[in-house]
Nucleic acid binder design. Structure first.
Ligand code: SF4
Ligand code: SF4
Lengths: 136, 136
DNA sequence: CCTAAATCAGACTGATTCGTTCTGATTTGG
DNA sequence: CCAAATCAGAACGAATCAGTCTGATTTAGG
């Protein structure tokens, strides 16, 4: 019930990047300096976030990152899913993955769908704009 | 963002135990047979659940388990916390654990408290009685 | 057109945690 | 008193995660 450190750092990185919304080019090293995270870690994060379609990268001298979408259209759920994969509390909730041998006789399986939806909704209700605010 | 298999199995085990609410003695092997889980796994689960105060165990010949509280007073949050420890999405939300080096300059830290509370509330709203129902 | 610098992208290693299994201590019934 | 049955805790192996490193690609300037 604890999300991975990478997802946590990804949120911090995205929050830092949101403040440079207007600037087209922001280097990963600059974000690392602002957040205090190790540089290689930020590099891996931007790779994942770019592959997920949340960031747009430009290579070459003077290259950098920029948000692929407005900050208001990015939620916590998007970031978490980009780093940790689909949000599925149990293996039976995941789409079509029949990894659990108890699917036939499991009585609690139908209820997980409701809980999963509620949890995902709690994350989706937090847009990136709110996290970018410095004050509480 | 996926809870451990142990927590999942713990919920299944508790759900199975809830049907024997009136019976004072239910062996772990019997629960394993009903749920289809490996016997040693159930043994470890009942140990954890007993240590957490959700089950009451009786040793010796003919011993077994019984619910320490009424099924209506046990929620998903209780079971998850018993197996996985406190529900804390990030390390800074956990009580007093100063494991993260970014606490000083992290701008998103205040917001996690709200999200964490919402998530915990979603789990606490599901009592064990609802999971014990066989039909959806 | 070529060189060179700066950047992202992917692959590798070590460590931690998770999941499972096994053996031992304790208690009741005959 | 003996024996069976049960819970409780400790030990092992596997998988995933976090972190680091080196290489491919692209742009700017000479
Ligand atoms: S079928 Fe039951 S035991 Fe298996 S993953 Fe789903 S809820 Fe858990
Ligand atoms: S202080 Fe920031 S980076 Fe550290 S655990 Fe909390 S939210 Fe994550």
């Amino acid at each position: 019930m604890r999300l991975s450190s990478m997802a946590d750092y990804a949120v911090v990185t995205m929050s830092a990047a949101a403040r440079h919304c207007g600037m087209v080019r922001v280097s990963a090293a600059q974000l690392a300096q602002e957040t205090g995270l190790p540089v290689p870690t930020v590099q891996k994060l931007v790779s994942l976030l770019t592959a997920a379609g949340l960031l747009r990268s430009s290579r070459g001298t003077g290259g950098g990152l920029k948000l692929a979408r407005p900050a208001a259209a990015i939620s916590l759920a998007d970031i978490v899913e980009a780093v940790e994969g689909p949000i599925a509390l149990t293996s039976c909730v995941d789409n079509g993955k029949h990894d659990c041998a108890l699917e036939g006789s499991c009585t609690v399986r139908p209820h997980w769908g409701v809980v999963n939806a509620a949890m995902r909704g709690a994350l989706a209700d937090v847009p990136l704009t709110r996290l970018a605010e410095t004050a509480a």
